[in-house]
Design a protein around this nucleic acid. Structure first.
Length: 168
DNA sequence: CCCGTGATTCTCT
DNA sequence: GAGAATCACGGGC
C-alpha cells in the first residue's frame, strides 16, 4: 500500500482527538510506545486505524485515510469484493479493509510494515486542509494528501450542529 | 442526497 | 447504572 492521505491527531492538546479527554480503555494504545496500531470502531460498522506517533506517555497518532494498492492487488480485491481498484483503499474504513486490519489488530507493532520512501516527495506535491468530519478543532489543517491523487478520499465537512430557531 | 449501526462517553440520577 | 448524544464512514439512490 502506498499511503496517499493521512490526518494528524495530537492527544491532549487536540479537541478532535480520541485522547483529548485522557486515557480510556479504548484509546490506551495511543498513550503507549510509537509505531503501534490504534484501531477503533466507528459508525457502527467501520474500523479505522492510526499509527501511534508520540513517545510513550504522550498520546497522539496519524489516521491512515487512503492509499493506492501497489502490491497484493488480488488479495485486496478479495477483501473488498465489488470495489473498483481506485476505491480499494479510498477512505479510512476501506483502507483498513484492504489491508486486512480489524479491531483485534489494535496494539500491533507495525514498525516493520512501514517502509519510508527511498526519495521524499517534494513538499510542493503535498496538500493540506482541514480534517474530515470533525466539529471540534475543525480549523486545524492537519489533513495531508498527495495533490491530484485519484485515490484520495472526498472531503466531507462535519454535519453542523442543529441550531435553535433564529429570527431573521 | 440520506441513513444504517453500535461502541463509547457524557450527563444526569 | 441508565439513557442520550456523538461519531476520525461507506454504500446506495
Amino acid at each position: 500500500m502506498r499511503l496517499t492521505e493521512v490526518e494528524a491527531y495530537d492527544g491532549a492538546d487536540d479537541p478532535g482527538s480520541h485522547a483529548y479527554r485522557g486515557r480510556t480503555e479504548r484509546n490506551a494504545v495511543m498513550f503507549g510506545p510509537p509505531a503501534h496500531l490504534y484501531a477503533y470502531f466507528i459508525y457502527g460498522m467501520h474500523t479505522n486505524v492510526n499509527v501511534v506517533c508520540h513517545l510513550e506517555g504522550r498520546a497522539g497518532g496519524v489516521l491512515l485515510r487512503a492509499g493506492e494498492v501497489v502490491d497484493g492487488l488480488e488479495l485486496a480485491r478479495r477483501r473488498r469484493p465489488g470495489s473498483n481498484d481506485r476505491d480499494l483503499a479510498r477512505g479510512p474504513g476501506r483502507l483498513a479493509n484492504a489491508l486486512g486490519f480489524a479491531l483485534s489488530d489494535g496494539g500491533l507493532d507495525v514498525v516493520d510494515l512501514l517502509v519510508p520512501r527511498t526519495r521524499c516527495l517534494p513538499s510542493s506535491t503535498i496538500s493540506t486542509g482541514p480534517r474530515v468530519g470533525l466539529r471540534q478543532a475543525a480549523e486545524r489543517p492537519w489533513r495531508f494528501w498527495i495533490t491530484n491523487e485519484p485515490t484520495v478520499s472526498a472531503y466531507r465537512p462535519a454535519k453542523p450542529k442543529p441550531e435553535l430557531a433564529t429570527l431573521d
